[in-house]
């Protein structure tokens, strides 16, 4: 894995030095690399350094935008994934539910197509903590539908429409995301 030098802020080493790590993290290869590159002794298992990819991420973002525009042009629908998932549940209506299913299948085809083209796997690090992932899944599923949108519906389409509700929603879920990772990694410890 390519090592990321971004950003190396000396002020932040205070927090990094306070970290406590879980035992299994010491066996993780990624953790070893991280220890070498940062000089930190204690590294959490999920703390895999990811390279800063401004070009690929901008291209990826533009593709997401293109998809959102096409969906509006073709179906007159906001490209919000939580809304699309919600339309698969009752009370669904035939045509809408069918195009929602088609969109979901398209999403799932993406990593397979990507792998076929580049000839390698999609790199991904997912927590294997079953309890954590189950709780997180419930929160994400319930929260996005209850709040009428997720990263795509509020964060992309809503902001592009200059919706005040979406702006507030985006600020709230971003803030909670930052706060949650901060508590998880720097207060409780990795």
């Amino acid at each position: 894995m390519q090592e990321n030098q971004w950003p190396r802020n000396p002020v932040l080493t205070f927090w990094q030095s306070k970290r406590i790590c879980s035992d299994n993290a010491r066996d993780s290869a990624a953790g070893e690399r991280l220890k070498e590159s940062t000089g930190r002794r204690n590294i959490g298992v999920m703390d895999v350094i990811t390279p800063f990819t401004p070009v690929a991420s901008t291209i990826g973002g533009m593709l997401i935008g293109l998809s959102a525009v096409l969906l509006m042009l073709f179906n007159g629908r906001i490209a919000g994934i939580s809304g699309i998932l919600a339309r698969i549940f009752p009370p669904y209506s035939g045509a809408d539910a069918a195009s929602a299913v088609a969109f979901v299948l398209g999403l799932m085809a993406a990593p397979l197509c990507y792998s076929a083209v580049i000839g390698g796997p999609v790199s991904q690090t997912v927590s294997a903590n079953a309890v954590l992932m189950a709780i997180a899944g419930l929160l994400v599923g319930f929260g996005t539908v209850y709040g009428s949108g997720c990263t795509s519906g509020h964060g992309v389409c809503g902001l592009a429409r200059l919706s005040r509700r979406s702006l507030i929603a985006t600020v709230v879920f971003m803030a909670m995301g930052f706060a949650t990772v901060f508590v998880m990694r720097h207060v409780i410890g990795g």
Partner: peptide
């Protein structure tokens, strides 16, 4: 709802690193 929903979502997003699109993908 526009505050409660994103609050719960943001916590789950931080815990897992997943929002709905990437999870399905």
């Amino acid at each position: 709802r526009i505050l409660i929903g994103p609050t719960l979502f943001g916590i789950g997003w931080g815990l897992s690193g997943f929002c709905p699109g990437p999870a399905i993908t």
